Amino acid sequence: MNKFSNNDRALVLFSGGQDSTTCLVWALSRYAHVETIGFDYGQRHAIELTVRPTLLEKIRSFSPEWQARLGEDHMIDLSLISQLSHTAMTENIAIEMQANGLPNTFVPGRNLMFMMVAATLAYRRDLNVLVGGMCETDFSGYPDCRDDTMKALQVALNLGMATHLKLETPLMWIDKAQTWELAGQLGGSNLIDLIRADTHTCYLGERGQLHDWGHGCGTCPACELRARGYHQYQASLPK
Rank of each mutant, 00 (worst) to 15 (best):
229 G>S: 14
218 G>A: 06
76 I>H: 03
100 N>D: 10
217 C>M: 08
147 D>C: 09
22 T>R: 03
18 Q>S: 08
143 P>M: 07
55 L>Q: 00
98 Q>G: 10
217 C>N: 05
130 L>V: 04
28 L>A: 02
123 Y>E: 11
31 Y>K: 10
158 N>K: 13
236 S>Y: 06
4 F>K: 15
133 G>R: 04
80 L>F: 14
190 N>S: 14
38 G>R: 02
91 E>W: 03
91 E>F: 04
104 N>E: 02
233 Y>E: 07
53 P>K: 11
164 H>M: 12
96 E>N: 11
231 H>Y: 15
137 T>C: 03
230 Y>S: 12
162 A>L: 06
37 I>S: 02
18 Q>P: 01
19 D>Y: 07
209 Q>N: 11
200 H>M: 08
162 A>H: 13
50 T>K: 15
227 A>S: 15
71 G>A: 13
62 F>L: 14
131 V>E: 02
60 R>H: 01
110 R>D: 13
230 Y>F: 15
84 L>G: 10
107 V>R: 08
46 A>R: 14
160 G>R: 11
16 G>V: 00
39 F>S: 03
229 G>N: 14
129 V>H: 05
63 S>L: 06
9 R>G: 08
150 M>H: 12
198 D>G: 00
204 L>T: 15
14 F>M: 12
30 R>S: 08
106 F>N: 06
64 P>F: 05
114 F>R: 12
166 K>W: 10
196 R>E: 04
171 L>V: 14
122 A>L: 03
38 G>D: 02
34 V>Q: 08
117 V>H: 04
67 Q>F: 11
212 D>Y: 07
21 T>L: 01
145 C>Q: 05
33 H>E: 14
112 L>H: 15
150 M>R: 09
78 L>S: 03
87 T>K: 08
129 V>A: 01
191 L>C: 00
30 R>Y: 09
54 T>C: 01
41 Y>E: 03
165 L>V: 09
41 Y>L: 04
96 E>L: 11
92 N>W: 05
72 E>C: 07
62 F>W: 07
217 C>G: 07
161 M>D: 01
81 I>Y: 07
46 A>C: 13
1 M>E: 13
149 T>S: 12
36 T>H: 03
123 Y>P: 00
40 D>F: 03
210 L>P: 05
54 T>G: 01
149 T>I: 12
112 L>A: 15
48 E>C: 13
223 C>M: 08
180 W>S: 01
47 I>T: 08
5 S>A: 15
168 E>K: 12
59 I>C: 00
120 T>E: 06
163 T>K: 11
74 H>G: 05
80 L>H: 12
185 Q>K: 12
59 I>H: 00
69 R>T: 10
154 Q>D: 10
182 L>Q: 08
63 S>G: 06
86 H>F: 13
230 Y>M: 13
148 D>N: 10
102 L>N: 00
175 D>M: 11
133 G>H: 05
34 V>H: 09
